[in-house]
Design a protein around this nucleic acid. Structure first.
Lengths: 375, 375
DNA sequence: CTGTTAGCGCGTTCAA
DNA sequence: TTGAACGCGCTAACAG
């Protein structure tokens, strides 16, 4: 049906082996035959058969990039940066592709299996992990270990390091990891608010079963605790997973509302926060997108930012500086981190010592935060 | 090295063919052997070899989604919608992957070739095309025709229909197309501004060699012309491609500045516009992201929106409604269009009559536009 | 319902 | 420098 190597060989009056050598280029071929072959390829519109090639060579040029939400610029920026390094930057053309897991550990596993089937050259997992259902995290870790064992480079970008299995202690870690300092960044952000004088600070975040949610919340609470604001009775995790709802108990959980990582969830959660604590003077959001929704909700309630209520986000996505007022947030060098992950995936940069590098998260104090009213 | 079908067969004491049948599932196998095989698969940690499978079956489960800029939510939303339909919605698991072309026709061709090599089941091209270098557009069209001929479903989403080659007239079009009404939407948007009383309207747009740029600009100018505002001497295309610069000639081109489709370009271009025409009362941006930059620039110049200058965008991305003031724009049903493209790519929805369907673009008049000062 | 047998198209020895 | 031959791992006929 389609034109094959043999067809080209016949057309150029050489053996198929010669054609193969000309195309792969890593073997001496006389200039005369090379041009003859190339002309035949052109005339016949020949296209290499990827599966056959991969089968024979026992390798492929696929690089998979897994993201939780492709419509979220947070992931788009990272994925774009990874691709800019893994794409055909040199002779080594790689088909780097991004796979949208929707934050589901199940789909993540599905994609990993699919990539494993394709004998992918590398896999980059971006963003926080889901740690809800016990077993799923282990299943992912096990699959990654198997991928690594089969020669696939595994890189984690913006995700906590894999737990090291006891039996593997001392060996090379299966995955190179660039982890974000979510905890530290969140802590510095809340310290900023505290230093401005805020004491009644609401927290609007994403699903409780995400590492990103948990770490940023931990940083926030660590800052509160250090300021003597930690109330007893609040567990580390809190609230249900349904948008707009949170833990109803007293303590810290009362001022934390879980939802999803999007704008409308931030809107709803902020209204809920206001219901629980009308005297709120600041809202910290787990990311910039949520913060945008929070701003809208506050504004719709007739509250001014930052005169009545301060608002802060996380990530420093491009739109944050353009918000009105400009959003105080925590900057994550998403592009740089993604690019580095891409280079590691391509083997062009060494794995960080110990397999793990922490990416810094810097406070960007802007106009959306100010001292609380009457102070 | 890796465990193969034969290993599983031996372990389960059946033939490799039986194992294959159990795994593909589309063939009757007794319950007893099926469980035995599955257990063997599990015990041996067997993973299907994708290339070998694709080679033997002469098909693959790859679906490619090409986007111009993966960091831009415009593409993220479309790609996410496509994936939600092409992902394993039923028994037919497809590895749907998004490829970032960066708007380069060259990389677009590279990706198409790579997908062709993999014998992709379908390819979805999103967003406007580049029409700069003559020949490149033809090369892409030719490649798409070849892909379609080889059985790959080709779908265009948010891109103008492929030119129909004369010799193919009457036949099935090679690509199903969902095209956006960029021209109509832009025209209605500018009519809205005109009806408010604006006469000095600046236009900030992307690279001149993109169909999206051209069509939206055409709609804008059509509205101006209908209002008798067309000045002679302005060509259809104008300006150089470098950000912040535009055509220096008189006529319409004077109020049009080309750049890239991002925020900083919108910022710079707006300053340039203000330099050329300090009496400007409105700025129309070719998309919402540019509009955001335009707002920032105006604000930094001490101009109020919309009291001093009105601003409008295009696309109605999620953040637009949260801008302050809420952005007047043109809504494109990106998610719906992407989902439909995905269904067509999967063969779950019929190709529109004639191969082309136009997606409507509706004016969303919001708070960023108002009558000009003193009126 | 299950086993046997041929290739799928290419990379890679081994000889020449 | 080139050609011939084998096999990668799997699916799809064809028998039984």
């Amino acid at each position: 049906m389609a034109v094959t190597l043999a067809d080209v060989a016949a057309h150029a009056k050489v053996s198929s082996a010669t054609v193969s050598r000309v195309l792969s280029g890593n073997y001496p071929v006389s200039e005369a035959t090379r041009t003859r072959v190339l002309r035949a390829v052109d005339e016949l519109d020949y296209v290499l058969n990827g599966p056959a090639s991969a089968l024979a060579a026992a390798s492929s040029d696929l690089v998979g990039i897994l993201v939780n939400d492709i419509a979220d610029p947070f992931f788009g920026i990272i994925a774009g940066a990874v691709q800019s390094e893994t794409g055909g930057t040199a002779g080594d053309e790689k088909l780097s592709v991004v796979c949208n897991t929707g934050g589901s550990a199940e789909r993540e596993l599905t994609y990993l299996t699919l990539l494993q089937r394709q004998r992918a050259a590398a896999v980059v997992l971006t963003g926080g992990a889901t740690e809800g259902t016990a077993g799923h995290a282990d299943a992912v870790a096990a699959k990654l270990a198997r991928l690594a064992a089969a020669g696939t480079r595994v890189v984690l970008c913006g995700r906590p390091p894999l737990p090291v299995p006891p039996e593997a202690a001392g060996g090379e870690p299966p995955a190179a990891t660039l982890t974000f300092d979510n905890r530290g960044g969140a802590q510095r952000l809340t310290e900023h608010l505290l230093s401005l004088g805020h004491r009644r600070i609401g927290y609007v975040t994403g699903p409780p079963d995400r590492t990103t949610t948990r770490h940023r919340l931990e940083g926030h609470r660590a800052a509160l605790a250090a300021a003597g604001l930690a109330e007893p009775g609040a567990g580390s995790g809190s609230g249900s997973g349904s948008p707009g709802s949170g833990s109803g108990s007293g303590g810290l959980g009362r001022l934390t509302v879980h939802g999803t990582f999007d704008r409308s969830s931030g809107y709803d959660a902020t209204l809920e926060l206001l219901r629980r604590e009308p005297g709120l003077t600041a809202v910290v959001a787990a990311n910039d997108t949520i913060a945008l929704g929070a701003c809208a909700a506050l504004r719709d309630q007739g509250l001014r930012i930052p005169q009545d209520v301060s608002v802060a986000g996380f990530d420093d996505l491009p739109f944050s500086v353009d918000a009105v007022p400009a959003l105080t947030t925590v900057r994550l060098p998403l592009h740089a981190a993604g690019a580095r992950a891409g280079r590691i995936a391509m083997g062009r940069e060494a794995v960080p010592p110990g397999g793990v590098a922490t990416v810094r998260a810097d406070l960007m104090a802007r106009a959306s935060t100010a001292p609380p009213p009457g102070r």
